[in-house]
Amino acid sequence: MIVFDKPKCLKDAPMHYCPGCAHGLVHRIVAQAVDELDIQDKTIGVAPVGCAVFAYNYFDVDMVEASHGRAPAVATGVKRADPSRIVFAYQGDGDLASIGMTETVHTAARGENLTVIFINNAIYGMTGGQMAPTSLPGQITQTSPYGRDVNTVGYPVKVCELLATLEAPYYIERVAVNSVKNVRRAEKAIRKAFQNQIEGKGYSFVEVVAACPTNWKMKPVDANRWVEEQMIPYYPLGVFKDKDEQK
């Protein structure tokens, strides 16, 4: 009996991500959710600009590539053009929380019936490790060699908390993928985010706190420990909004 195998909605192409990068893991979780809900034929993904720009090479579903930060806007268009499709946007922190903040907030404020997966690894990965809006106070990056100074560049943006203040979003949760326990929770959250869309409930947003071993200059195992010790205290995990429970 097979206990675990590659999801069928993930292609065989080897991923270009660095060793230990959480993107591959989250791709697997998304693909598994699509498989379990049996929606491969009607799913359309929107890829971001950033490390996950080649997501369309890995997901065996229809994909659209959006310009930088515009994935929720493109996803809105796709969903409105054909509401029978299941549409998800997959974005990193430089894409979603910086250049795409406007689209992110307004898509959430309109309560579009979409699923947004947000990978928060506190750094710009593809461009070589610059400071992101989500970099932690004191975090050393290429553009903050003495650590992020909150007096000059401000504090990291907590996207889940920010979106949870809006009226329209249906479901907002923050999860992590640094341990088996957290991966289990992430699987459940992402499946729920897709399920909400199938049931037409509205905007579902899942933030995944993830490791970027290469740009953090750590070994993958140490990077996951750093997630546990540094990132999760600043970005607490949990459900920030769930209208299922408000009823």
Binding site: K6, P7, Y17, G24, L25, V180, R184
Partner: peptide
């Protein structure tokens, strides 16, 4: 479950 590249079949 932890493998980022779906290398392992169980």
């Amino acid at each position: 479950m932890m493998c980022p590249d779906c290398v392992i079949k169980v």
